[in-house]
Amino acid sequence: MTEYKLVVVGAGGVGKSALTIQLIQNHFVDEYDPTIEDSYRKQVVIDGETCLLDILDTAGQEEYSAMRDQYMRTGEGFLCVFAINNTKSFEDIHHYREQIKRVKDSEDVPMVLVGNKCDLPSRTVDTKQAQDLARSYGIPFIETSAKTRQGVDDAFYTLVREIRKHKEKMSKDGKKKKKKSKTKCVIM
C-alpha cells in the first residue's frame, strides 16, 4: 500500500485542523484551538488504489514558523489553505509557496490551493482571484467548507493525484537520464 505524506499549511484560523478532522473523523470542530502540530493517518481508496494518507496539520501562528522547514522537508505534497473571508490569509499563500519551493529546492512541488469556509456569506476573496492565482502557479484550486464537508475529500484526493503525477514524471525523467548515460565512448 502506497503511503502519501501530505502537509496542510496556511495562516492561523483558516480551518486547516477543521478540514483535516472532517476528512479523518467526519465531524466539524467549530471551536478554535490553535494547533502546534498534529499528525493523522487514514486509509482510503483513490482511483481504485488503496493508500495510506499521513497528514500533518501544522501551526499557522507566526511564533511556530521555525518548525516549518522541518515538516516541509518531509512532506510530499501540500494543501495551501486560505479562508475566503480573510484576504490576508490569501496573500500569505505566496509566502508559504515560496518557502516550500526553497526548502524542497524545487520549482515543481505537488500543491493544491484550497479556499476554505465557502459556506460563509462574508467572502472577501473572489473565486476568480483564487483561480487566477492557482493557474499562475500551475496547481489545482478547490473551494471547501469544513463545516458542510463540501470539497473536503476532493481537496485531499486531488493532492494525492498531483503527487502521483509528480512521481510518474520524475521516474520518466530518471529513465531518460539513465538511457543517456548508457551511451559509451570508444577510443581507438
Rank of each mutant, 00 (worst) to 15 (best):
Lys180Ser: 14
Ala11Asp: 08
Leu6Ala: 11
Ala66His: 01
Cys80Pro: 01
Met111Arg: 01
Val125Lys: 10
Gln129Tyr: 13
Ile36His: 00
Leu79Cys: 06
Leu79Pro: 02
Ala59Ile: 00
Gly10Ile: 02
Ser65Trp: 04
Ala59Gln: 00
Gly151Ser: 13
Thr50Pro: 12
Val45Tyr: 07
Glu107Asn: 09
Tyr32Trp: 09
Asp38Gln: 02
Val45Thr: 13
Tyr4Asn: 12
Glu3Ile: 05
Asn85Ile: 13
Leu56Gln: 01
Gln70Leu: 01
Glu107Val: 10
Asp57Tyr: 00
Ile187Trp: 10
Phe78Leu: 02
Gly12Asp: 12
Phe78Asn: 07
Ala130Glu: 10
His95Arg: 12
Leu56Gly: 00
Gly13Leu: 10
Lys175Gly: 14
Val114Ala: 04
Asn86Phe: 02
Thr74His: 04
Glu49Trp: 05
Glu76Cys: 06
Gln129Ala: 11
Val14Tyr: 13
Asp69Ser: 05
Lys167Tyr: 06
Glu63Arg: 05
Thr2Lys: 08
Cys80Lys: 02
Asp69Gly: 04
Asp119Ile: 11
Gln43Ala: 10
Ile142Thr: 08
Val186Asn: 07
Gly48Asp: 10
Val152Arg: 14
Thr20Gly: 03
Thr124Lys: 09
Asp105Ser: 11
Glu76Asp: 15
Asp54Trp: 02
Glu49Thr: 08
Phe156Val: 06
Gly174Ala: 07
Thr144Pro: 12
Tyr71Gly: 01
Asn26His: 10
Val7Gln: 02
Asp69Pro: 03
Lys101Tyr: 14
Ala11Gly: 10
Phe90Ile: 13
Glu143Ala: 12
Asp126Tyr: 10
Val14Phe: 13
Arg102Tyr: 05
Lys165Gly: 12
Glu37Met: 00
Leu120His: 11
Ile55Thr: 10
Asn116Gly: 09
Asp119Lys: 06
Tyr71Phe: 03
Val8Cys: 09
Ser89Tyr: 01
Asn116Gln: 14
Leu6Val: 12
Asp38Ser: 02
Thr74Glu: 15
Ser145Phe: 05
Lys117Val: 14
Gln129Phe: 15
Glu107Gly: 12
Asp33Tyr: 02
Ala11Asn: 05
Lys101Phe: 05
Pro110Asp: 02
Cys80Arg: 01
Val9Leu: 05
Ile84Asn: 15
Asp132Gly: 06
Thr35Asn: 00
Pro34Cys: 03
Gln43Pro: 10
Pro34Ala: 07
Ser122Gln: 13
Ala155Gln: 13
Ser106Cys: 10
Ser136Asn: 05
Asn116Tyr: 01
Ser122Tyr: 12
Lys117Glu: 13
Lys88Gln: 10
Thr158Ser: 12
Ile139Arg: 07
Lys169Arg: 06
Ile139Thr: 07
Arg97Leu: 15
Glu3Leu: 08
Asp69Leu: 01
Ile21Arg: 06
Val114Gln: 03
Phe90Asn: 04
Lys177Pro: 14
His94Gly: 14
Val152His: 11
Thr158Met: 14
Arg164Ala: 15
Arg68Phe: 00
Glu62Pro: 06
Ile93Asp: 02
Met72Asn: 01
Gly60Arg: 00
Val109Cys: 07
Lys182Tyr: 11
Gly13Trp: 12
Lys16Pro: 01
Val29Lys: 03
Phe78Val: 01
Leu56Trp: 02
Ile163Met: 08
Asp57Ala: 00
Cys185Arg: 12
Thr124Glu: 11
Ala66Gly: 08
Glu31His: 07
Tyr71Val: 00
Arg164Lys: 10
Ile24Thr: 07
Pro121Val: 08
Asp173Leu: 14
Lys177Gly: 08
Leu53Gln: 09
Tyr64His: 00
Asp30Phe: 10
Asp153Phe: 06
Lys5Phe: 02
Lys101Ile: 09
Val114Phe: 10
Gln43Met: 13
Val81Gln: 07
Cys51Pro: 13
Leu6Lys: 02
Asp154Arg: 07
Glu98Gln: 08
Gln22Asn: 11
Gly115Tyr: 08
Lys5Ser: 09
Ile46Gly: 14
Thr124Tyr: 08
Cys80Ser: 04
Arg41Leu: 11
Ile46Ala: 12
Lys182Ser: 06
Asp69Gln: 03
Lys42Ser: 09
Val7Gly: 02
Gln25Trp: 01
Phe156Trp: 06
Asp54Ala: 03
Thr87Ile: 12
Phe156Asn: 05
Leu53Met: 11
Leu159Trp: 03
Ile24Met: 11
Thr2Asp: 15
Val125Asp: 11
Cys185Trp: 06
Lys169Ser: 12
His94Gln: 15
Ala59Cys: 03
Ala66Val: 09
Gln61Met: 07
Pro34Glu: 04
Ala18Arg: 03
Val114Cys: 06
Ser136Phe: 07
Thr158Ile: 09
Lys169Tyr: 15
Glu63His: 04
Glu63Pro: 02
Asp47Gln: 11
Gly77Asn: 02
Asp69Met: 02
Ala130Arg: 14
Pro110Trp: 02
Ala59Lys: 00
Gly12Trp: 14
Thr50Leu: 14
Phe82Gln: 06
Thr58Arg: 00
Lys182Met: 06
Glu31Met: 14
Val103Ala: 05
Lys175Met: 12
Asp30Gly: 09
Ala134Arg: 10
Thr74Arg: 02
Tyr157Ile: 13
Thr20Val: 08
Ser136Tyr: 07
Tyr137Asp: 09
Val81Thr: 11
Leu52Thr: 12
Ala134Ile: 09
Pro140His: 04
Lys5Gly: 11
Ser89Pro: 03
Arg161Trp: 13
Asp69Asn: 03
Gly10Arg: 01
Tyr71Ser: 01
Phe78Gly: 01
Leu19Phe: 10
Ser39Tyr: 01
Glu49Ser: 12
Thr124Phe: 08
Val160His: 06
Ser106Leu: 11
Gly60Met: 00
Ser145Asp: 15
Phe82Ser: 13
Lys16Glu: 04
Gly60Leu: 00
Val14His: 15
Thr74Pro: 02
Thr87Trp: 08
Val81Tyr: 03
Lys165Cys: 05
Asp132Tyr: 05
Gly75Asp: 00
Asn26Leu: 04
Met188His: 15
His27Phe: 11
Ser89Ala: 14
Tyr40Gly: 00
Lys128Phe: 08
Thr144Met: 04
Tyr157Trp: 06
Glu98Tyr: 03
Gln70Ser: 07
Gln70Ile: 01
Asp30Lys: 12
Thr58Gln: 00
Asp108Trp: 06
Gly15Ser: 02
His27Ile: 12
Asp105Glu: 08
Ser17Gln: 01
Lys167Arg: 06
Met72Val: 01
Glu62Phe: 02
Asp173Cys: 14
Ile21Tyr: 13
Arg164Trp: 07
Ser145Asn: 13
Arg149Val: 08
Met188Val: 09
Asn85Tyr: 06
Asp92His: 03
Glu143Val: 05
Cys118Gln: 15
Asn26Asp: 13
Gln22His: 07
Val8Ile: 07
Met170Lys: 07
Lys180Gly: 14
Ile24Lys: 07
Asp105Ala: 08
Met188Asn: 14
Tyr96Arg: 05
Gly15Tyr: 02
Lys178Glu: 12
Thr2Cys: 10
His94Ile: 15
Thr183His: 09
Thr35Cys: 00
Tyr137His: 06
Phe28Ala: 02
Ala18Val: 05
Asp126Met: 09
Gln99Pro: 02
Arg149Pro: 08
Asp57Glu: 00
Arg73Ser: 06
Leu133Met: 06
Thr183Gly: 14
Ile139Lys: 04
Gln22Ala: 08
Ser39Leu: 13
Lys178Asn: 10
Val186His: 15
Glu143Asp: 09
Asp38His: 01
Gly60Phe: 00
Gln43Phe: 11
Tyr137Trp: 13
Thr2Met: 15
Gly151Glu: 07
Lys104Val: 06
Asp119Ser: 11
Lys178Pro: 09
Tyr32Pro: 02
Leu23Glu: 14
Ala130Phe: 13
Ser39Ile: 02
Lys180Leu: 06
Lys147Arg: 09
Ala66Asn: 05
Glu76Lys: 03
Phe90Ser: 11
Asp30His: 15
Arg161Tyr: 04
Lys182Cys: 05
Gln131His: 06
Ala18Ile: 04
Asp173Thr: 07
Asn86His: 04
Gly174Asp: 10
Ile46Ser: 14
Cys80His: 08
Tyr40Leu: 01
Leu53Lys: 09
Asp154Ile: 06
Thr35Asp: 00
Glu162Gln: 11
Ala66Arg: 03
Met72Pro: 00
Val103Ser: 05
Thr20Ser: 08
Glu31Asn: 05
Thr87Arg: 10
Met67Val: 01
Leu23Val: 07
Leu79Tyr: 04
Glu49Gln: 12
Val109Ala: 05
Leu23Gly: 06
Thr87Ala: 14
Phe156Gln: 02
Thr35Leu: 00
Met67Tyr: 00
Leu23Met: 11
Gln150Met: 08
Ala59Leu: 00
Gln61Tyr: 02
Ala18Asn: 14
Lys88Cys: 07
Val29Ser: 08
Val45Ser: 12
Val125Cys: 10
